[in-house]
Design a binder for these strands. Structure first.
Lengths: 169, 169
DNA sequence: GAACAATGGTCCGAACCGTACCATCTAATC
DNA sequence: GATTAGATGGTACGGTTCGGACCATTGTTC
């Protein structure tokens, strides 16, 4: 039995948008886009397509020469599973692991922490804004744009939060 | 070698605040507080203290009768490790897995999704606000209060986001 | 054509995870 | 005072995930 995990749907979802792709392609896309709100370690991005292919959700085509890259694409079965998943809204909310907040909760010095975290979030915000600008012109999908917006909103929220702490007396 | 993971610090951090505790106690505290921004499955909360005790970071005392609960506390070594960790601000940001945004990115129907997610986040917000009120009166630690505030801020951000989508034409 | 960076990928043991199950205590009900 | 239901408290375990180290091919620069 091959249970489909959220990672599975990430892979299938990307292939649904990108057509055929190698795991490396997927890795790049993840890093640039959904990695921002759905983290996946790179080793999984290589392992998962193989697993899915074996279970009939993906086609696997291997180059005969050179790098012998593997290219994956959705099968009908894969496409069906993906669509089914997409058409059922989740109630589940997020899962979060924020080491900054963790330290804060346990009594780290708030101001120092705030400085460090602030820097990170500001940088992240810029990244996201850059990305959003690209999507404005380039991307066909509305979902991608919305999601980028969501990310921006949360970064701003983080920045408000840490700033408040940083400037406190 | 026993590398200290974030989970380790959660356990040690809680013991730092609570004094001695059983894994069950820890589980309860996590569920009520830091679980909101740092998720850990309950099986880990039982496994980790044992691991840490074996490595000398915790003391382990087992009741002789009845439930034979195990009580854990920080050793000097544990306290030192904790303090060291607390005194180094992290640059690392969060790790997030949000299935709602994932589906949105891949083309789920935004309005339907919004309705479902909205309900969840509104409930979560209430929970957090209830908790925050409790902390106002009961909790000594400033960190805990700040962190609850952060959570509230993000829930509100989520609600703004999904609401905007839900009411769209 | 050597050296170096970028690309593309594999491998592995430890940690993690969900889930199912087990045991003890409490206290209400008869 | 026996029975039972629910809350409390905990263990076990096999499969999955994870980070990180390492390997191989290609492209670029000198």
């Amino acid at each position: 039995m091959t249970p489909l995990t959220q990672t599975s749907y990430v892979v299938m979802g990307l292939l649904g948008q990108a057509g055929e792709a190698t795991p490396y392609d997927l890795k790049q896309i993840v890093a640039a886009t959904i990695g921002n709100f759905f983290s996946i370690p790179h080793s999984q991005i290589y392992a998962e397509p193989a697993r899915l292919a074996k279970a009939g959700y993906l086609t696997e085509r291997r180059e005969r020469a050179g790098r012998r890259r593997k290219h994956y694409g959705l099968t009908a079965k894969g496409r069906k599973a993906l669509e089914e998943w997409l058409s059922t809204p989740t109630e589940e909310l997020y899962e979060l692991r924020d080491p900054g907040l963790l330290k804060l909760a346990f009594g780290s010095d708030p101001r120092e922490l705030a400085r460090t975290q602030l820097a990170g979030h500001e940088q992240k915000l810029e990244e996201l804004q850059r990305m959003a600008r690209l999507l404005q012109v380039a991307d066909p999908s509305e979902g991608a744009r919305l999601v980028a917006e969501a990310g921006i909103g949360h970064q701003k929220e983080y920045i408000r939060f840490w700033k408040k702490i940083a400037v406190r007396r």
